[in-house]
Structures are given as C-alpha cells and as structure tokens.
C-alpha cells in the first residue's frame, strides 16, 4: 500500500469541524425537544382515542414511517416554497427532524401509555381526577420511564439521520466533512475522523439522555 495517511492536515479545519458538531447537536436538541412534545401529544391522542386527533396522528405516523427521511426533507425544503412558504435550510432541517421524531416517538410513547395498569387509572378516576389530570399526573411519567431507553435510541437515530441535512446545505457535521475533503482531497482521513465523531456523539447523547431520564422523570425506577 502506497497511500500515505495524513491526519494532521485536518487540524487546520478543526474550527469547521467544531462548528459542524455544535450545529449537529443544536439540530438534535431542538428536534428532540419538539419532536418528543409532538410524540406525547400524538401518543395521548392515539392511546385515549381523542377524535379527531387519533385519526390525524394515525395517518401522520404511517406517512412518516413509510417514507425516507431524505425525501421528507426535500419535500419540506423544496416543496413548501412552491406553496409560497419561504423556509431556510435550518428551518427545514429542524421541521423535518421534529416531524420525523414526532411520528416514531408517538408510537414508542403510546406503547408506554398502553402498558399503564387499568387499576391505576381507575384509582385516579375514583379520586375525581379529570382525564387530563390523570394523563399528566398519573399516566405520563411511568409511561415515559418504561419506554425511555427506546426513546434514547430513537433520538440517536435522529441525530445520525441529521447528516442528511447536509444535502440541503445545512452546514452541520457531514456538510463540514464534505467541504473539508473537497479542499484537502483527504477523503479517507476526513470521513474516518467524522465517523468517529458521530460515534462518540451517539454514545454521549445516549448516556446523557439515560441519566437525564433518571433525574427528570419523577420518582424511582420501577
């Protein structure tokens, strides 16, 4: 093999890599927050059959789960402007991630809600709590706790999937990698390093979220 590795040549691009990493993290954080909020709403509508929202969310979930993320992103970024909605690459990326995570987390959280023992809901009903109070105070926290590991995995998938946003020129980590290797022609070194960075980000996000779940979702692990 005659190829001479040159990882040092990446050093001059470290600011670009750092900026790309931070943007990937920002996309993921915003996408996760709103995506999970959407997922909770969707899961509640589906699990408790709140018409008409249960139908709306059922269609939405099937639509998103059965189409590629890249196409969803293109639809939002190139399709919406045709309808007169102007949207930049960051807005499109965030919207696509929220919509994507919203659909998957709807199904994940629904599983948690449906695993609530019937008797706990009856106990809350017998205390004269309303459906909304029962959902927010009795059902939601144990449901999230049960499915939290699955949610963490889905968030990691969404973070990795955000690399696709480079295709609409959102300057996140993969965009940075494409840019660097087009300048220094060191494709192997560049993608090797960026792959490693994604790997570490994924591990870090999963650990962070698992711990955050333990702290933020009320009560003890059951």
């Amino acid at each position: 093999m005659t190829y001479a590795f040159d990882f040092a040549s990446l050093l001059e691009y470290r600011d670009i890599l750092l900026a790309g990493t931070l943007r990937t993290l920002a996309l993921t954080a915003i996408g996760t927050f709103f995506g999970l909020a959407l997922g909770v709403l969707g899961a509640a509508s589906r699990a408790w059959q709140l018409a008409p929202w249960n139908r709306v969310f059922a269609v939405y979930v099937e639509l998103i789960r059965n189409t590629p993320f890249l196409v969803q992103l293109f639809f939002i970024f190139f399709g919406l402007p045709s309808l007169g909605v102007s949207i930049n690459e960051w807005q499109a990326s965030i919207l696509a991630m929220v919509i994507n995570l919203g659909a998957y987390s709807t199904e994940i959280i629904r599983a948690g809600i449906e695993a609530t023992p019937r008797g706990q809901i009856e106990a809350a009903e017998s205390l004269a709590m309303t459906r909304r109070q029962i959902f927010l105070r009795v059902v939601l926290a144990p449901a999230l706790r049960k499915v939290w590991p699955a949610i963490c995995s889905q968030v990691v998938i969404v973070m990795l999937g955000s690399s696709v946003c480079s295709q609409i020129a959102a300057e996140e980590l993969t965009f940075a990698a494409n840019f660097i290797q087009s300048r220094n022609f060191r494709a192997f070194e560049t993608y090797f390093v960026v792959t490693g960075m994604y790997f570490l980000l994924a591990l870090a996000i999963r650990q962070l979220m698992l711990r955050a779940g333990d702290r933020l979702i009320g009560g003890r692990r059951t």
Partner: peptide, 20 residues
Amino acid sequence: LRDLRQKVGMVFQQFNLFPH
C-alpha cells in the same frame, strides 16, 4: 361523575398506588 366521585372514596383489591 366528578361531583359524585368527590363524595365516594374507593379502595381496590390490587391497591393501585401510583408507582412513581
């Protein structure tokens, strides 16, 4: 059923405490 339920307490076979 809210007004009625405020006047009627119930205890169940399976306790049904909120685990969290």
